[in-house]
Design a protein around this nucleic acid. Structure first.
Ligand SMILES: [Mn+2]
Ligand SMILES: [Mn+2]
Ligand SMILES: [Mn+2]
Ligand SMILES: [Mn+2]
Lengths: 218, 218
DNA sequence: ACAAATATTTAGTTTTATCTAAATATTATT
DNA sequence: AATAATATTTAGATAAAACTAAATATTTGT
């Protein structure tokens, strides 16, 4: 697969939320920051290659083979992200762009050895699971912080949005993955929350809460 | 620069032996395993971009700017090679192909942090010097093993040929960089040598000796 | 100095990945 | 059910990087 084909495969995979959902041409175009006509061309090619199922006007989905390729790319992307943070002093908001390049490097040995070198990590710096070599991963049960009732306590295990502004916000407010969070109070009017984290009580907007995943402990 | 442009720049750099020599179209074509007509197109483009000096029928050389790019690529290539050997259990004959891809990853922070992570290595697994961020490196005085007189003793510091067959040969015969070598005897007829290495005396052909660099100690 | 051999460039194609503009299909609205 | 809005595809064009075949320039050998 070419770099471009690989990025399309990943886009279809992510838009389908990892399940094998059919996604629209326009959705792919938006994700790839390209034009719908370019997408049509590409998904025809992917279809010819046996990577995607394409019915004109009906959207596109990945074949089993396509799913495998997607999972391998996700695996590589997330392993490189771990490497950048763990070994090269990158912060979690700086890794995506570089991993977007590194995921296309072709070498099975490289990936396997990287995995080993990092101690077979289960999640990337944003809390997203890393598929095994065979493409398997367990999805941990997690809930968005704005959807749990007051009184819920849990561990912060991931972010939904991994854009730089959001991650920088979390850094600034000293919120990290692994922190224990207790929902103290919820404002009816705007859905904002008072949460206890690291012995401090802080106030966060609903929009922030809607992008933080919690593994509920109690 | 595109990946392809970068590989051409490196080819011109290496054919010019690092000095700013003019190299022929055909030489570049052979190095790049491509056709001379493709080279003509590319060096015109590099010339337009201010990377190369090109006079039709007179060959091509790098501008200062081109030299800088070449050195940055060589730096990245060799740092990645060190990483693969030191951290990911690659052997020295497996690294080139992967480094050929990794050298094109664009991230200044990545390179600087990789350099730091590796402890600012001075040479790659084949004994070739790693340019500093500014593009500087000292070339160590080294001689090919087949060109030194009998009785010379030195340390094996590099290989001229870094093809897999040659490197595998050295592995098989337990010859590594850093080993002390003493030239015992030289056969007039075929230029083959008896050398003492790691307390053992072994016989090597002139062709082998012609690809091993020695830093002379005595 | 001329012819032959070699090196290099030019002209014209191909493939990949993109684009714009126009055509067509699907979905939503009255 | 017809029309309007939206989504998608088709047609045709462009740029990058390669190729082949033919033309031209340079170098070599006599
Ligand atoms: Mn990518
Ligand atoms: Mn991630
Ligand atoms: Mn390369
Ligand atoms: Mn090397």
């Amino acid at each position: 697969m070419t770099l471009s084909e690989e990025d399309y495969i990943k886009a279809i995979y992510h838009l389908g939320k990892g399940e094998n959902t059919t996604v629209s041409t326009n959705a792919v175009a938006e994700q790839m920051e390209t034009k719908p006509s370019s997408v049509t061309d590409m998904i025809k090619k992917l279809s010819d290659k046996g990577v995607a199922n394409y019915k004109p006007y009906k959207g596109v989905s990945l074949t089993e083979y396509g799913q495998k390729i997607a999972l391998s790319l996700v695996r590589k992307h997330r392993l490189w992200e771990v490497f950048l943070v763990e070994n090269l002093n990158f912060s979690w908001d700086e890794v995506h762009e570089v991993a977007e390049q590194l995921e296309h490097i072709k070498s099975e040995k490289l990936v396997d050895q990287l995995d080993k070198h990092l101690g077979f990590p289960q999640v990337d710096p944003h809390g997203d699971p890393i598929p095994s070599k065979k493409g398997e991963f367990k999805k941990t049960i997690k809930k968005l912080l704005n959807e749990v009732p007051v009184g819920t306590s849990g561990i912060c295990v991931g972010v939904k949005d991994s854009s730089t502004p959001f991650l920088k916000f979390l850094d600034k407010n000293d919120i990290s993955l692994g922190d224990t969070v207790l929902v103290m109070e919820k404002e009816e009017f705007d859905g904002s929350l008072n949460i206890k984290i690291k012995e401090k009580i802080i106030h966060i907007s609903n929009q922030i809460a809607a992008n933080l995943y919690l593994k509920i402990t109690e």
